[in-house]
Design a protein around this nucleic acid. Sequence first.
DNA 1: ACCTGAACACCGTTCAAGT
DNA 2: ACCTGAACACCGTTCAAGT
Lengths: 249, 249
Amino acid sequence: MAKRERGTLSRAEIVRVAMEVAEAEGSDALTFRRLGPALGVAPTAVLRHFRDKDELLLAIGAQLLENALAEVDHDEPSWRERIMSLSRATRRAFVAHPRVAALVATRTLRQEAEFRTVELIIGAMEQAGLSGRAAASMYRVVADTVLAWTAFEANVHAVGLDVMRQDGLAWDREYVVLPADRYPHIRGVAEHLSEVDREDQFELALELVLDAVEARGTAAGHLLDGGANGASGDECQPDTLDIAVNCER
Amino acid sequence: MAKRERGTLSRAEIVRVAMEVAEAEGSDALTFRRLGPALGVAPTAVLRHFRDKDELLLAIGAQLLENALAEVDHDEPSWRERIMSLSRATRRAFVAHPRVAALVATRTLRQEAEFRTVELIIGAMEQAGLSGRAAASMYRVVADTVLAWTAFEANVHAVGLDVMRQDGLAWDREYVVLPADRYPHIRGVAEHLSEVDREDQFELALELVLDAVEARGTAAGHLLDGGANGASGDECQPDTLDIAVNCER
DNA sequence: ACCTGAACACCGTTCAAGT
DNA sequence: ACCTGAACACCGTTCAAGT
């Protein structure tokens, strides 16, 4: 070995090469033993910069989130556009590196990139008219919706483009030949099942959540303006399941 | 070894014990080498019943889905209630075995339990008034919403109850001490961030999607038979996205 | 301080051999 | 037909030793 000068290995370079290795050879290939040679270094040298493999994975997750945040226009005046921009950027950043994304998308990162993302979303919630508990609650719905869908999609893409295409065909193949007496509903729409665009669903699911934010924010605004009456006023019961309503005491 | 008569090992028993081992010792412990002794058998004996580890994982996923389907009342007349029932049952079944659930929730199973689930959801979409491409599209939004949230939640639970509680505290600890000048919005609601109930968010996210299904189904019904649609109430306006309105009768 | 190389305690999977 | 045990090609992580 000995192909590289001492002190030239950095966390940033390790993260970069780790992502390359995982995308090129499959996420199973992301091992210290392969990563070392790819960096021109002994496999165990990486452990001088990351305590264990988990710490490396979290750093990769942070990098993906950094990539997403870099694309967001933080001066966009509309809170709704800011959230959509962040969501689309996150989706793009994760799908651009599906194999590593699948490994980290459901992790809690607790790094600076995560703090900044939380800050951005909560700021948007407050601009929408929510505050306190309602803002915290809706932040979580928005964040988890983006993360859950992103993780799901990353997992789908991580299996590889060829397998994915084959999976799409499987909807045509396997589902079309299911016995019609036992699966009449599937047979009725089987031909359409493979046509569905996943990006459209992501957007739709998000729009629905943001509609809810908007409705609740406006209602809360009315309350502040003096209107103690209205649909939302009666819903502020301590035992109600409708957590999104602003029940500030 | 030799603790067990020949021919008494079955796929069902392997799946059952595998789930026990994973929940008791952590999902990392789900290896053939530990599974064998737990079954009173050589580690490689399991390979006589499952081609490889992936096939075992898919069988575990199918079992989880079977558990969920067994709880659903298939004769429930309201399509909306059937979907909610299926969704809650899926959530319960997966959270009841979080460690194995985390391993399989994002997989495509392509087994009988999955076919039956697809059939149930598409049937509900058609009863809601959707058909063809719209039914297929909305099926995917509903199914992916349930799967994505379930997978996400399973991953959260899989880290262990103690770590989870510590994570909850982390919201109090780490987020409360963030510098207020850089993260003013976080500081404003930090005290509420740890109070959010995840089950409520799951329900809310689902209700939002089902509202969309209902709105589209009613609209389609109006187009088809000029206004009267038995499956949905007339008081549900198709263009109303105000999710505070519940169209359930 | 940073890196190496051997060692330790594990993996999944294959395969000839047993019953 | 079903199961065993050895073997093969891998893992992450530790640690004494080098520079």
